[in-house]
């Protein structure tokens, strides 16, 4: 197997195991005295009114859509950045156009008022 994948797997195992062990230790050390009051959601010491799991107003969901676009773009830039010194001016212009189009999109969204938390 590829050593890189082995290393990754090793780290993943150790990471999860470490977290699990840390959580498991208090099971034998810590007291366990459950009560209704402890099991209730903490809302400043008062009895909560209503459900938290509702159709919650997420003020930024359009940002999230724009985020997907720009995140993909950012990832695209990395391979280009690695080889830019070989591509030279042509590569620069090509990517310049690509970024300009994206920026245009950003400006459009901005002017449309999408970049406001509603």
């Amino acid at each position: 197997m590829d050593e890189a994948i082995l290393a990754f797997t090793g780290f993943l195992l150790v990471a999860v195991a470490l977290g699990y062990i840390l959580i498991a230790i208090p099971r034998s050390l810590a007291p366990r005295e459950p009560s209704d009051a402890k099991a209730r959601a903490y809302e400043c010491g008062e009895v909560p009114v209503g459900e938290p799991w509702v159709r919650f107003h997420v003020g930024y969901y359009i940002f999230a859509l724009a985020f997907v676009v720009f995140d993909v773009e950012a990832v695209l830039l990395f391979p280009w950045a690695v080889v830019l010194h070989k591509l030279g001016l042509v590569g620069l212009i090509q990517m310049g156009i690509f970024i300009a189009v994206l920026l245009l999109g950003l400006v459009y969204a901005w002017r449309k008022g999408v970049l406001e938390w509603s």
């Binding site: 230790i25 208090p26 050390l29 810590a30 007291p31 366990r32 459950p34 402890k38 099991a39 209730r40």
Partner: peptide, 13 residues
């Protein structure tokens, strides 16, 4: 100290 604390799970969680 953390190790000695009760691990609470809210009933409604």
């Amino acid at each position: 100290k953390m190790l000695g604390k009760e691990d609470l799970v809210p009933a409604a969680a």
